[in-house]
């Protein structure tokens, strides 16, 4: 499935789509979006890249093994629930900082949880896609 136009286009599309996926992730708490959708959008971007360029270059772009991404995502999600335990609240109770970061919004443990979901979903989909497209 080689097409020069598509190959060139996806080269440009990848960063844009990744940016879009992060945007979806960050705005998820207040507008439609979130870790699942963001992760899937990012995964779609990489999958597109993998189809047009082949698996090897995409692995290079991704830099880390998707399985590792999955693990990191899970750990981030698990750790995001710990601050609540320190405050003697049930595990995973959301904790928010009082101040805002410009253009991202409030900082809180649910955001980290969502980031964990994002990474895990991305890692999961890419693991599958790489496995199936590779051979």
């Amino acid at each position: 499935m080689r097409s020069n136009i598509l190959t060139t286009a996806t080269g440009f599309l990848l960063p844009l789509l990744l940016l879009f996926s992060v945007f979806l992730l960050l705005r998820g708490h207040n507008e439609p979006g979130g870790g699942f959708v963001g992760g899937l959008a990012a995964a779609s971007a990489f999958s597109l890249h993998a189809i047009t360029h082949g698996v090897r270059p995409t692995r290079a772009v991704l830099r880390v093994q998707p399985r590792l991404l999955m693990g990191i995502g899970l750990w981030v999600a698990i750790l995001s629930g710990l601050p609540a335990l320190l405050l003697d609240l049930p595990y995973l109770t959301g904790q928010w900082a009082g101040w805002k970061i410009p253009s991202i919004g409030k900082l809180g443990t649910p955001l980290f949880f969502d980031i964990g979901v994002y990474l895990a979903v991305l890692g999961m989909v890419m693991t599958i896609v790489f496995e199936l497209v590779e051979d």
Partner: peptide, 11 residues
Amino acid sequence: VIGFGVQAFAL
């Protein structure tokens, strides 16, 4: 999302 995982596995 789970459905996707299941389908991929079945495939």
